[in-house]
Amino acid sequence: MSNDLAPITPNSTLCQTLSCLQEKFVVDFANSIDVARDHIRVQRQRTGFFARMYDGFTGKGARRQTEINAGLVDGVEASLKWLTELTESMAQSNLAITQVNDRVSILSGSMVELSHYSVDTREQLKEMAYRLDKRMHDMTQEISRIDFIQKAKLNIDITFSKWEAGRFSVLSPAARCYAAMEELHWGSLGDYCRCLENPAHKRREFLQLVIDRSTKQLAVDAAVELQTPAEMATVWLAAPSISRSSNGIDMPQALSWLADQMTIDSTPFIYSAAHITKNLPSKVPLIAQARRIAEAMTHEIFPLETLDA
């Protein structure tokens, strides 16, 4: 018959009921109440004289009472068992609560520790970020400084390359030197030297480089030895004979225009190189070495006061 029933699953009422039947003491415990009630109900109804006599004579009354008593004993025994198990379960639960409480305490301690660790780590990170930021700033500044130096060097190289390549050949050697100085003054080197944040010794090094390279190129252009003095008028200020091309006329005029603000007293070498004069300024020597001219022009363009400021 059971083959035609619906499939039995672990959650079905059947399994619940059968599993409850498997625990005999639970069934006895619960079912004994109904059994005892049945007997007690009959017992109450049999209170008549003859019924009591009959039950007493046949022993039915005693047997019924025995059944009630046995049911009660079963119930008490089951209660004891259940109570024992319940107490054990409760003890286990209390133990578990204690463990949970201990665990919560440990967890709280760890949490505090973790919080401190977190705050410390945050502080360290902030400090590290500050340091990194400063470092980055310094590096940026350093890169800017290096870049500035490189640009100044490049300015020097390009300017002297022009000079060496003969781009100023329509001018006298002194004028060439002045033209180169102007290129440097308006170029990156000029910016570098005017920036007071740059170290003075570095600016001096650059100017010394300019003087050295100018000296060398002046000597080359004038075809004289470096240590050999030459006449100012015939060598250093002597303009080459040139064709009357536009460049040959325009460049001296442009140079003259550039030196328009130069005075004979403050910048005698530049003045004499940029303007055509019959007589040399009194501050300009009649003969001079190439270095003397280079130094004089450099300092007239890049005054020492500005370097030392």
Binding site: Q22, K24, V27, D28, D34, V42, Q45
Partner: peptide, 24 residues
């Protein structure tokens, strides 16, 4: 029957569920 004197205690090894009348 009401108050049957059949006793489950005679079968201690068996789980018995009795359906007894709750009224006469």
């Amino acid at each position: 029957s009401d108050g049957s004197l059949w006793s489950r205690h005679n079968f201690p090894d068996t789980t018995i569920l009795e359906i007894r009348p709750q009224s006469n």
